[in-house]
């Protein structure tokens, strides 16, 4: 079931066209990874989805309801994890959650229970009565996420939620995202860390210069863009005959020798891995073999001409 339907979204700031007839759909229960270089329009698209900015043209429907005139009803079902840590430094972790739960209409015993559950969910129960000034970077990020979860949104929008934290905290947050998704929350996730998207997203949308330039599952995107795979092979002895036999295989484009190591570029889907291995064994034995598949990073680079982490967050 489609829960977000954005159609022909246009947003201008002065003469600058930030969103250029963008379409975006989200299906209930998915984790959608939104990728794009700086200035691609990701944050503007998110702000339009939440109703923080007015769009110049297009239509946004969330949970089947148009944003026009129904913003507050839609907002009740959304949660926003901001790129910057946006919490109150002068309130404890518990009070922060009470505030953000309160503005979503929670009160009394329900609010108390939700706050306790959410603190426990992000692993901050022990620090409930502590001020954020005493928190590590990872704990601040978790509190930042908790503030968006306390009202149990159906759709959670996470804008670069792991910027500037250690790998352990990042893993904790990614596991939290997976668990939320298992519990039924639909998640829109933007990040500069490609490995995060590869690890959690069920579908990916790539934006550049205000356009959606590609979308699909990671597998679909990789298959669409890349037509080659690289096989790295270390053998006991390299001979001219071995290289010649490898080059004759159907779909092999190039064989590069570096000492006892051979790099073989093959057409994707040619099924050459087994054949290469068999030939190398006959020629004296294989020390190691590694078949490298194209990654999402390669897809991104091919489509945008930029590396995702060239710059800071948008």
């Amino acid at each position: 079931m489609t829960i977000v339907h954005m159609k022909d979204i246009v947003k201008r700031y002065g003469n600058q066209l930030v969103l250029d007839y963008v379409d975006l759909d989200m299906v209930e229960g998915e984790i959608l990874g939104l990728l794009g270089p700086n200035g691609a329009g990701k944050t503007t698209l998110i702000h339009a989805l939440i109703g923080l900015i007015k769009i110049d043209a297009g239509d946004i429907q969330v949970f089947g309801t148009s944003h026009k005139g129904n913003s507050l009803d839609i907002k009740r079902q959304l949660g926003l994890v901001t790129q910057d840590i946006s919490i109150y430094e002068d309130l404890t972790a518990r009070e922060n959650l009470e505030f953000f739960g309160g503005i979503y209409g929670l009160k009394g015993q329900v609010l108390k229970e939700r706050v306790a559950e959410t603190l426990s969910f992000v692993g901050l129960s022990e620090y409930a009565n502590k001020l954020p000034a005493k928190f590590s970077g990872g704990m601040l990020r978790r509190l930042n996420i908790a503030c968006a979860l306390v009202h149990r949104p159906k759709l959670l929008i996470m804008d670069e939620p792991t910027v500037g934290i250690d790998p352990q905290s990042r893993n904790h947050i990614l596991e939290t995202v997976r668990e939320l998704n298992r519990q039924g929350t639909t998640i829109l996730y933007t990040t500069h860390y490609m490995e995060e998207v590869q690890s959690i997203a069920s579908r990916v949308v790539i934006m550049d210069q205000g356009h959606v330039i590609a979308e699909g599952t990671i597998r679909e995107l990789v298959e669409r863009i890349q037509h080659e795979e690289k096989i790295s092979l270390e053998v006991a002895e390299v001979s001219g005959e071995l290289i010649s036999r490898l080059k004759k295989l159907n779909g092999i484009k190039q064989v590069i020798q570096k000492g006892n190591e051979l790099q073989i570029i093959s057409q994707v889907g040619a099924g050459n891995l087994d054949r290469v291995l068999a030939i190398a064994r006959e020629a004296g034995g294989v020390r190691s073999i590694n078949a490298e598949k194209p990654t999402l990073e390669d897809v991104f680079l091919t489509l945008t001409g930029k590396r995702l982490r060239d710059g800071e967050a948008e």
């Binding site: 939440i50 923080l52 507050l72 901001t82 910057d84 503005i103 979503y104």
Partner: peptide, 8 residues
């Protein structure tokens, strides 16, 4: 920004 995303 967070308050702006809330139903208020």
């Amino acid at each position: 920004l967070r308050i702006g995303a809330a139903p208020i």
